[in-house]
């Protein structure tokens, strides 16, 4: 770990000002991924700005019935927040499917969005990686890629985003409120994370000098029909091979009124395609309609040898998650 200076900020403006004066600085909150990466010599900030003292710890209902979550609310506090449990159980489930109780106690909501990939090559400073060192190459393409992307990958990078929480946030159409030197702006969740393209070093559209201050959920929470299905190599404390956030609203006759579908573990960002959801609207809940939506969502999926299985696995997981969401009220 490279030595670094440390400073503490109490207000958002103060944090931004510190950052503006120190281009080598990074913000730190839970630190669960940043310190991990610093110990691997993957991240080498010259300064850490501790933002845990910022007043971003509240969860509040918005004027239009949504929920505004302060960026510093811990993953555990968010998952167990009564409003989240009651109105957004999909989010609670997704959070609790990730990491461990210890990490969830530490990790912040904003930080969860900024988790970096678990690609073996990215994490090992002794080998090439375009995400870590642009232009050095991507050994994963022809190497060990069982855990890698099947959608949206580029020649330069086939890494996946590791978060569970973000898959639910994508399905729920959350927005991300960020503060920067030029003031505040709101980013749709779908636009927050990006595909690797020819800039795999960039995970998202947050500027270096910007800070996430809040995540806002719209009023629609899909509390009745939802499922978060995570498929992994052991029963707990492992990253997803494939995960699915499925949310439905159903008409009185059982047909689908509204649908949301997002995948984790398959791409550089939570994977969502409105066309798949369109295919579900007005349809009955059955294997056929679910299968069509799965096919649509997985259109263009491509494996790299070890991860070929993820395409079929994802299809089956989508169908299963939709079945769970459709058939069960409350927790699946």
């Amino acid at each position: 770990m490279t030595p670094f200076a440390y400073a503490r900020a109490r207000q958002v403006d103060e944090a931004l000002a510190l950052r503006a004066g120190h281009p080598e600085a990074r913000f730190i909150a839970g630190g669960t991924n940043l310190l991990d990466l610093m110990k691997e010599n993957v991240a080498r900030p010259g300064m850490l700005i501790d933002i845990t003292g910022l007043p971003l710890h509240d969860v509040e209902t918005t004027a239009d019935g949504g929920l505004r979550i302060g960026a510093l609310v811990s993953n555990a506090d968010l998952a167990y927040h009564p409003e989240v449990e009651r109105r957004y159980p999909l989010l609670a489930q997704a959070i609790l499917a990730g990491a461990s109780p210890q990490l969830r106690n530490m990790a912040s909501t904003g930080g969860n969005l900024l988790q970096r990939t678990r690609c073996y090559y990215f994490y090992d400073a002794g080998v090439p990686c375009n995400k870590r060192e642009p232009g050095s190459g991507c050994p994963a393409r022809d190497g060990l890629n069982r855990i890698h992307a099947i959608l949206g990958a580029s020649d330069q990078c086939i890494a996946v985003h590791p978060s569970d929480m973000c898959v639910a946030l994508a399905a729920l159409e959350a927005t991300v409120e960020v503060a920067g030197p030029a003031g505040r702006r709101v980013i749709d969740f779908a636009d927050f994370h990006r595909l690797p393209g020819d800039q795999p070093q960039r995970d998202n559209t947050l500027e270096d000098d910007e800070l996430i201050v809040a995540i806002t959920l719209p009023a629609r929470g899909f509390a009745r029909h939802h499922a978060y299905l995570k498929v992994r190599d052991r029963a707990s404390y492992a990253f997803a091979l494939v995960s699915v956030a499925a949310a439905l609203e159903r008409e009185a006759d059982g047909r689908i009124a509204e649908a949301r579908l997002a995948l984790g573990g398959v791409a550089h960002k939570p994977w969502r395609d409105p066309r798949a959801e369109d295919l579900l609207r007005g349809q009955p809940c059955n294997a056929e309609s679910f299968g069509r939506a799965a096919d649509a969502l997985l259109q263009g999926a491509q494996g790299f040898a070890h991860n070929d299985f993820k395409i079929e696995l994802a299809r089956r997981a989508i169908v299963r998650a939709l079945e769970q969401a459709a058939s069960q009220e409350g927790t699946p």
Binding site: Y6, I28, G31, L35, L48, A76, L103, N105, M106
Partner: peptide, 13 residues
């Protein structure tokens, strides 16, 4: 009172 991983926490924080 909350459990955390001490390895991923800076003492200064």
């Amino acid at each position: 009172g909350k459990r955390i991983n001490a390895c991923l926490s800076l003492a200064v924080m």
